[in-house]
Design a protein around this nucleic acid. Structure first.
Length: 858
RNA sequence: GCGGGUGUGGUGGAAUUGGUAGACACAAGGGACUUAAAAUCCCUCGGACUUCGGUCCAUGCGGGUUCGAGUCCCGCCACCCGCACCA
């Protein structure tokens, strides 16, 4: 390419130069000082192998905020770490015979090396990986304190069991109800597992959502529904004849107003009564075993065909008569009492069941305007706020002897009635279950307890932490290597010294990510946190991550912040650790797939595919191209940022990923977009060169440029503050176009370019430093105080009001900013388009909204 | 199945509390410069009709409220995210 100017935009030189300068001055080291602090955090990455554009977008957003806040005078903490435990490392070990530890740390090295050229303002001195013994040892200390505080306990839990490999499977490893390796039909199996008592805090976790006013409404709503508080009725149905030590069946219902329509009782297969009956009923035992087939996800359970087994037992209905007792696969032991009464008329699941087994469907209420309610294939389920007709063929105890009520009023009335009759009590119930944390896997944080035949479960002594993972393990057979590692597993009891066994389960990786934000405030402390550091840096002022974490990760972190407060690891006021939350959209890209000889999908990296020929480059095999979906390692539809940086530089990648789509929405990577961004940055660089060379004696001030500058400052600042980076970028395009066309004097254009450099600095920091220096700016642009817009320049003296006729724009009128209504009216009536529309008549109505619009109704 | 979200030109998107639909870009087409290409610069760019003044249609679909609806309400459709052992 011929050089048309003496200097050209050379990102590789510029970026290396400024990154070195930043590093030399430790510009991003977070320090406690007199400034107000600002803690910005992006959800830390899993070290899957290489960074992809999704990472670039996520960390660029955080970096924009971090650099902006720094320019605004805050002491900024912007750390980075690695969520490093998890299944993929073990899968890689199984596939290629390596070690999860080697695989993980190698990946971290690669990804750190890919991340640093992005020029993120990260304090790398705080970096850690959750698989560092230093980190997970502190996590074990936390666990012991939580155990001591009664926040962790053991309970039975249901897992996916592969009967061929004899191993527990993750939900992800269950495909269409079958184990991913063995292909065997998965069963649900009960194991004793460790659990965090998160449901004890359900009420607080729910109530405190209202304080999170800088969280997206949708996330709060999702958490609210997940916690699922409901007030219902708990009541006991007396068995017609007591059996197996059971006098009755306790049920819980959120719709006691439907009791009149009850036509059966159903209990979960794991219900104590069902288990007792199954002991001497082979047919029931076979049924229970059969419905155990399949995975544990709520989705699988909900979608499964409704199946039941008639026990032949009956219970007394307090409203008269009896109800049959069934064992049903759609009743969950985890929720309520593990037993329900079925009301087919007003619950679709109950109706499906009733139709399958010939049970009646009698309505408890009907629509206000209906004579009767006929139930065919669809249950009648109005919302609880809708008024319906309760008191029709049979009495219903509504207040004031009314006939009509909303569902909620009727529920309350039914609970009052049941309590008065002594047949049940009102009870608040949460959908939220305790958090089972045990995993039967190697690559996780060991649970620091020992099982002793005489002492029971004994916590490891704190001075023995960390309980480190052994390195000498193999993955050639299914199951947990810790389980078959005698020298690691067999230890003396910490209490009595007798031969005992370590807990071989490790912790859910969600535990690792539930407190890392607190560890970042003192990453080298000898205790999980340092209270002084935590008091200074907490809370996270701005947390940024994917919407896919809207429920579990965020809820678990909120729980951990409370638990750490209770165990003295966090100061007061950190119960809600994330002041503001932003959920960014995903980066999407087409996916490329072929089928293996068993018909299963095999995904391929974009660089392995000849897209135009739709074939694999290596083999020529035909490839299916799926439309753009979330970039993910499993789908291999990832773009390598390294290639982009090599071609265009980091600033181009950074600018592009936040430029077009709103940050909360998905973003599709396209090669053209990157090219166009690069051209623009080159244009700005060239413009700066022109200005730097311009004759400084020709020095005319320019009011238009000053106004444009003020508006740019105002709107870019608003865009960054409001997480509308795409709008801030659009404004920067506009401002640089204006500056490019401006014929103002050199000093005026130089001042404007300095402001442009400052406004661009959060997005394209390297180029901004370069522009700043070219314009004679002193020090780092990032250290220059954020520019302020002169308010006087933001308001215009005159405004253009659109004139509508019958709601459609027909003309416009220029008026003084504060013109009186009657002045505007007079001008409007003179307008040619208005006169044409009126055709000599008078308007039916004239609407003048000052400062906005005029509408003439004819 | 349940919970949450999204839908605007060929494309990504913009549009304070209901007030000019399409800012800013991408792609495309035309032109300038050049021996040529690249680069750069300029112009056009939702659709239909037009007497070139404009007129009508148009924000997933169908209704409604309003002087005025992309925005509010009701009913659909399509796609996406989550569903507790993927991270």
């Amino acid at each position: 390419m011929p050089r048309t100017t003496s200097m050209t935009y050379d990102p590789s030189a510029i970026e290396a130069k400024w990154q070195a300068a930043w590093a030399d001055t430790e510009l991003f080291k977070a320090v406690r000082d007199a400034r107000p602090k600002y803690y910005v955090l992006e959800m830390f990455p899993y070290p899957s192998g290489r960074i992809h554009i999704g990472h670039v977008r996520n960390y660029t957003m955080g970096d924009v905020i971090a650099r902006y806040k720094s320019s605004c005078g805050f002491s900024v903490l912007h750390p980075m770490g690695w969520d490093a435990f998890g299944m993929p490392a073990e899968n890689a070990a199984m596939a290629s015979g390596g070690h999860p530890k080697t695989w993980t740390y190698d990946n971290i090295d690669v990804m750190r090396g890919q991340m640093k050229p992005l020029g993120l303002s990260i304090d790398w001195s705080r970096e850690f990986a959750t698989c560092d013994p230093d980190y997970y040892g502190q996590q074990q200390a936390l666990f012991l304190d939580m155990l001591d505080a009664g926040l962790v306990y053991r309970k039975p839990a249901i897992v996916n069991w592969d009967p061929v490999d004899m191993t527990v499977l993750a939900n992800e490893q269950v495909i269409d109800g079958k184990g991913w390796r063995s292909g065997a039909e998965v069963e649900r199996k009960e194991l004793t597992q460790w659990a965090f008592a998160i449901s004890d805090m359900a009420e607080d976790l729910l109530d405190s959502l209202s304080k999170l006013d800088k969280w997206p409404e949708k996330v709060r709503l999702m958490q609210e529904n997940w916690i699922g508080k409901s007030r219902g009725l708990q009541m006991t149905f007396k068995l017609s004849a007591p059996t197996h030590g059971h006098e009755g069946i306790e049920v819980y219902t959120t719709r006691p107003d439907t009791l009149r329509g009850a036509s059966f009782i159903a209990v979960a297969p794991e219900h104590p009564l069902a288990k007792a009956l199954a002991e001497d009923d082979a047919e029931l035992a076979a049924f229970a075993a059969d419905v155990r087939k399949g995975g544990t996800t709520e989705e699988a359970l909900e979608k499964a065909e409704k199946r039941g087994y008639d026990t032949g037992l009956t219970v007394e209905n307090p409203l008269g008569g009896t109800l049959p007792v069934w064992v049903a696969n759609f009743v969950l032991m985890d929720y309520g009492t593990g037993a329900i009464f079925g009301c087919p008329a007003h619950d679709q699941r109950d109706l499906d069941f009733a139709i399958a087994y010939g049970l009646p469907a009698d309505p408890a209420f009907k629509p206000v305007d209906a004579d009767a309610l006929e139930i065919a294939g669809e249950a009648y389920v109005p919302s609880k706020t809708e008024v319906v007709h309760y008191h029709f063929d049979k009495p219903f105890p509504l207040k004031d002897k009314r006939d009509f009520a909303t569902g909620q009023e009727a529920i309350d009335a039914a609970i009052d009635w049941a309590e008065a009759q002594g047949i049940g009590t009102g009870k608040t119930q949460f959908r939220l279950r305790d958090w089972g944390l045990s995993r039967q896997r190697y690559w996780g944080c060991p649970i620091p307890v020992v099982h002793c035949d005489t002492c029971g479960v004994v916590p490891e002594k704190k001075e023995n932490l960390p309980v480190t993972l052994p390195d000498d393990v193999t993955f050639d057979v299914p199951g947990n290597p810790l389980d078959r590692h005698p020298t690691w597993r067999d230890v003396p009891c910490p209490k009595c010294g007798a031969a005992a066994k370590r807990e071989t389960d490790t912790m859910d990786t969600f535990v690792d990510s539930s407190w890392y934000f607190a560890r970042f405030t003192a990453p080298h402390a000898a205790t999980p946190t340092d209270l002084d550091d935590a008091a200074y840096w907490m809370n996270v002022d701005q947390y940024i991550g994917g919407i896919e974490h809207a429920i579990l990760h965020l809820l678990y972190s909120r729980f951990f912040a409370r638990a750490m407060g209770k165990t003295g690891h966090l100061p007061q006021g950190t119960e809600e650790p994330f002041d503001a939350l932003f959920t960014q959209g995903m980066v999407t890209h087409p996916a490329y797939v072929t089928k293996d000889d068993r018909g299963r999908a095999v995904y391929h990296l974009p660089e392995e595919v000849d897209v135009s020929a739709r074939t694999l480059r290596a083999s020529g095999e035909a490839v299916d191209i799926l439309p753009a979906i979330k970039m993910s390692k499993s789908k291999r539809n990832v773009v390598d940022p390294q290639d982009i940086i090599a071609q265009y530089g980091a600033d181009t990648a950074r600018w592009f990923v936040i430029s077009d789509s709103p940050p909360e929405r998905d973003f599709e990577w396209t090669p053209e977009g990157a090219e166009a961004v690069h051209k623009h940055l080159r244009r700005v660089h060239r413009l700066a060169e022109d200005i730097a060379r311009a004759d400084r004696s020709a020095n005319t001030a320019d009011a238009d440029l000053a106004r444009a500058t003020a508006r740019a400052i105002h709107e870019v600042t608003q865009g960054i503050e409001g997480f509308a980076f795409n709008k801030a970028v659009a404004k920067l395009y506009e401002f640089s176009n204006t500056l490019n066309k401006s014929d103002a004097g050199a000093d005026a254009r130089r001042d404007a370019m300095k402001v442009l450099a400052q406004l661009m600095a959060p997005m394209v920091p390297h180029l901004a430093e370069e522009l700043w220096t070219m314009m004679g700016g002193e020090g780092f642009v990032m250290r220059a105080p954020w520019p302020k817009a002169d308010p006087a320049l933001l308001v215009d003296d005159t405004i253009t009001l659109p004139i509508q006729v019958n709601g459609k724009k027909r003309s416009e009128v220029v008026v003084a900013k504060d013109a009186a209504k009657d002045v505007i009216e007079a001008l409007v009536m003179e307008d040619a388009a208005v006169q044409r529309a009126l055709n000599g008549g008078a308007p039916r109505k004239l609407i003048v909204v000052p400062g906005r619009i005029v509408n003439v109704v004819v």
